[in-house]
Design a binder for these strands. Structure first.
Length: 655
RNA sequence: GCCCAUGUGGCUCAGGGGUAGAGCACACCCUUGGUAAGGGUGAGGUCGUGAGUUCGAGUCUCACCAUGGGCUCCA
């Protein structure tokens, strides 16, 4: 056989007289490296390959060792096998299914005759640790499809048999550790002992292959690391995430509440409503700038409207219906059908287009009971919704303008990390394939034209058209869908919308559905988690707290309060006869950006001492200067304090 | 909707067959104290709802409602 050459990252070349495995290449370099090898990155692929993979001549190889971040993927893959082994050692009647690696760990889905309990999870973790302590060698074997099916069938592992059948490969790989084995394509570690830390995290129901018609399985979530310290840090971060939970922040800051008599219906308390309205006003200002006109349309419509729009046929599981005096009505789940009615109230000319109408209308969608979640998934909400009626040839420029507006708004809010997804036609849809082709191409072309990178989500579009979804990635690296833009050729057709063109003939407009914040409810939830409740000053319910040292400054404090209010600043004067430290603590917990600490010194000098929530303190400031700087910060919707430059919102630390 | 868990004063939680507890918050009083919790007193709960078991049920059983973690769906 001709010599086989393997190129390493430093461009050095190793030569073999046969096609070597990743591990063999590592051994040829050194025993220490070989011992630490957990896999290989081949030809710049993103996924780690198994260390037992045989390499062809000319392969470029980067050996993945325990010290590298990519090792986690391999460790977790093997840890999933350890979990499956642990479960089957504890309960031999439990059947295994699949156990993939996910973002921060892995899970394994089991088919168990009885549900697992929290105590079981502890038992699983303990048994996993015992198995790891055995430091078993992991051995890969290639079985014929026939042999694999026979073996797993005999064991009663019917899910595995189904997987092997569906794979339809002549041979499949099986990984053995001791006398336990599992069908798997890898990658896996050499010996289980390199898994230094495992933690079983939680339990959930899941359906076989994600289809609710299939049997329900028990999904056990867990994570694994190469180092106990990394696990400790991960668990710490989980705690941090809990502290930022918008439901907790909302309660702590008195922003919003829920009541069992309106599941999924948030109550915005005064402070929450203030944030809500500030955001709405912010978007309203942008509407003027970007050529939108705001409209107000009805809440409730005769069901005929939704028959016509297609919502009844495609969306009725999510709609609220009511019958009044023998007539069927529905609360609107979306604004678009109403906007079509509004469009058709007048004869439209091509000179009127693009007609951009915005609507903060309240929407109601009957979400299934298990899907509600704080503010991010509710049954009544309001979008920063707008529809653009335009001619076909305007689509691209409208999409561009939308992306510019979105970027403008996100930047103002400090949301700089987002990605774009293009969702294409779903199975349940209206309209012809030719129409869908046009719509999908229009979106793709506009993005290419703008040189914006995007990912295609095949089959994820709305029933009436393809869409762009803007996913914002928050401070804890979690993705959220906020903005969206949907191209719709179907509603204009359904409502027979027209405009008179320059040729004096009727033309069909295209309708674009778009939102930038998404829903105000969800946006507030996401933004609270992103900022850990440290909102920019313009958005924060109480901007200034006046804290008197003793009662004898009350008159001066009242005067300051009156002046601030006159300037439109949201101020609270804490008059209680509590000690200063106590008042500061409370203001701090309420995340109030500025505290005016007023004692005899300030009163005598007629100035103010300002404590920022970071703890930074400026003594003896001129009050008028303070007010004008503060007003400037608020009016500019700045994300930074003019006194310290510290960020008021972004990447705020949890306190 | 499905699986699992949870539901005790406004909030955070303890108590697990013999009739309700703590801390914080709240009210009143004392304290007037300079940068993250001063002290005292008091009020406040048909223990999610409804049935059942029992001499007796926050406590055990069942159903329902809500919430939480997921699945599925989605702004």
């Amino acid at each position: 056989m001709a010599a086989v050459h393997i190129t390493l990252p430093d461009n050095s070349v190793r030569t073999f007289d046969h096609e070597p495995t990743v591990l063999e290449v590592a051994k040829s370099i050194g025993p220490r490296l070989a011992k630490d090898t957990v896999g290989g990155l081949i030809n710049d692929e993103k996924e780690v390959s198994d260390l037992r993979r045989i390499l062809k001549d000319g392969t470029r190889l980067k050996i993945v060792t325990l010290a590298m971040p990519e090792a986690l993927e391999v460790i977790r893959h093997s840890a999933a096998h350890v979990m499956a082994q642990a479960v089957q050692e504890l309960w031999p009647d439990v059947k295994v299914t699949i156990g993939p690696v996910i973002e921060n760990g892995f899970y394994y889905d089991f088919s168990s005759p009885r549900p697992f309990t929290p105590d079981d999870l502890l038992a699983i973790e303990k048994r996993m640790e015992q198995i790891i302590a055995r430091d078993l060698e992991v051995v890969k074997e290639d079985w014929s499809q026939d042999q694999a099916i026979k073996t797993f069938d005999k064991m009663g592992e019917n899910f595995k048999v189904e997987i092997i059948r569906d794979l339809g490969e002549k041979s499949v790989s099986v990984y053995k550790q001791g006398d336990w084995f599992d069908l798997c394509r890898g990658p896996h570690v050499q010996r289980l002992g390199v898994i230094k830390a495992v933690k079983v995290l939680s339990l959930a129901g899941a359906y076989w292959r994600g289809d609710e018609k299939n049997p329900q399985l028990q999904r056990v979530y867990a994570t694994a690391f190469t180092d106990k310290k990394d696990l400790a840090e991960y668990l710490h971060n989980l705690e941090e995430a809990k502290k930022r939970d918008h439901r907790k922040i909302g309660k702590d800051l008195g922003l919003f509440y829920f009541h069992p008599l309106s599941p999924g219906g948030p109550f915005f308390a005064p402070k929450g409503a203030l944030i809500y309205n500030q955001l709405q006003n912010f978007v309203r200002e942008k509407y003027i700038q970007y050529g939108y006109k705001e409209v107000i349309t009805p809440q409730i419509f005769d069901v005929d409207l939704f028959h016509r729009s297609g919502h009844y046929a495609n969306y009725k599981e999510n709609m609220y219906f009511t019958k009044v005096e023998e007539r069927d009505f529905s609360l609107k789940p979306m604004n678009c059908p109403g906007h079509c009615l509004l469009y058709s109230t007048e004869l439209r000319s091509y000179r009127d287009l693009p007609w951009r109408i915005a609507d903060f209308g309240r929407l109601h969608r009957f979400e299934r009971s298990g899907v509600m979640h704080g503010l991010t998934r509710v049954r009544t909400f309001c979008q920063d919704d707008a529809h653009i009626f335009c001619a076909m040839e305007d689509i691209q420029s409208e999409i561009r303008s939308f992306m510019v507006m979105l970027n403008d708004i996100y930047n103002s809010l400090g949301l700089t990390n987002y990605t774009i997804f293009l969702s294409t036609r779903p199975a349940q849809r209206m309209g012809s394939d030719a129409v869908w082709d046009r719509a999908e191409n229009a979106l793709a072309d506009a993005l290419k034209d703008l040189k914006l990178p995007y990912t295609v989500n095949a089959g994820d579009g709305a029933f009436y058209g393809p869409k762009l979804d803007i996913m914002f990635v928050d401070a804890l690296k979690r993705p959220w869908q906020l903005g969206t833009l949907q191209v719709d050729f179907n509603l204009p057709e359904a409502f027979d919308l027209k405009f008179i063109g320059a040729d004096n003939k009727d033309h069909r407009p295209v309708m674009l559905h778009r939102a930038i914040l998404g829903s105000l409810e969800r946006f507030i939830g996401v933004y609270l988690e992103h900022t850990a409740g440290h909102l920019p000053t313009w958005l924060t319910p109480t901007q200034v707290a006046i804290l008197s040292v003793t009662d004898s400054q009350n008159d001066y404090c009242l005067e300051l309060e009156r002046k601030l209010k006159a300037e439109g600043v949201r101020v609270e004067f804490d008059q209680r006869s509590e000690k200063l430290g106590f008042k500061i603590r409370e203001a701090q917990l309420q995340k109030i950006p500025y505290m005016l600490v007023i004692g005899d010194k300030e009163k005598a000098a007629g100035n103010v001492s300002v404590r920022l929530k970071s703890g930074a303190t400026k003594y003896g400031l001129n009050f008028s200067d303070f007010v004008s700087k503060l007003k400037c910060e608020i009016q500019e919707r700045s994300l930074h304090s003019p006194w310290t430059g510290e960020a008021s919102a972004q990447d705020a630390t949890v306190t």
